[in-house]
Computed example of a mutant assay.
Amino acid sequence: MPQPDKSRRRTRDPQAKRAAIIEAARATFAELGYEKATIRKIAERAGVSNGLVTLHFSSKEDLFTTAAAPQQIVQNVAGDLEGLPRRVASTFITRMETGELTESFTALVRSSAGDRTVARELMRAMRQQSVDAYREVSPDADAEARVEMFIAVLNGVAFGRYVLADGPLSTMTPEEVIDRTTALLRTVVFG
């Protein structure tokens, strides 16, 4: 009796497939923007079926929000309030420099031009994640306004350095950008 071909056996690793879908979505949204990206293109890029994408994510909007939200930053804010501006600036700039967040930011910029509703939803999700993380560090009653200013500073740095890539900001070393961004964020936190 012939033995089954083990090379054709499917792997059942839902977490790995979900991660592949998210990575494919980041790349597809960054390349095409929200409107032109389709579940079919994302599934094809991830090497999975359309049905598997919709099994993991209830909608294209849900997938976009999950894929584009830079959750890695808020995961690195734990610690004292004094060091918060440096931790946030360092994490953000380092991840932008390595390209980990570049696709997320590019997807946000491209999508905001085409579908403002989706871009607003992404910003709301990012804002809420950030407010929750900030409140872990400081029970500040003004947390939402401070987080909004953090996001504005980081978006400005990202747009100037990584999207436009022109002017003095684009020629600074990463450490200089971290130092200057830290100074701006310190003003947001401490006034």
Rank of each mutant, 00 (worst) to 15 (best):
F190I: 07
M126H: 05
S49E: 02
V147N: 00
D132C: 07
A43M: 05
R161C: 14
P85W: 06
L55K: 12
R87L: 06
S170W: 12
D140K: 08
I42T: 05
R180N: 10
V109P: 00
L101I: 15
G191R: 14
A16C: 12
E23M: 11
V153W: 07
L55V: 06
D13V: 06
V131Y: 06
L169W: 04
E103N: 13
K6Q: 09
A183E: 02
I22F: 11
G33M: 10
N76Q: 15
D62H: 12
K41R: 14
F105N: 08
A78M: 13
L55P: 00
A143Y: 03
S49C: 01
S130E: 03
M126A: 12
G114E: 07
F105K: 05
L101P: 00
D115Y: 08
G160Q: 09
G47V: 03
F159L: 14
D166V: 14
F29M: 04
T102C: 11
S49W: 00
A43F: 01
S104A: 12
L185G: 06
S59C: 03
A20D: 01
I73V: 15
F190Y: 01
M123Y: 06
F29G: 04
T98E: 11
P70S: 15
I42A: 06
V188C: 05
P85Q: 03
T91D: 09
F159S: 03
T91Y: 06
V189M: 04
A78Y: 12
T38N: 03
A67W: 07
E103Q: 14
R146G: 02
R161A: 15
I21A: 00
R95W: 03
R18V: 02
T187I: 03
K17I: 08
R186K: 15
F29W: 09
T94E: 00
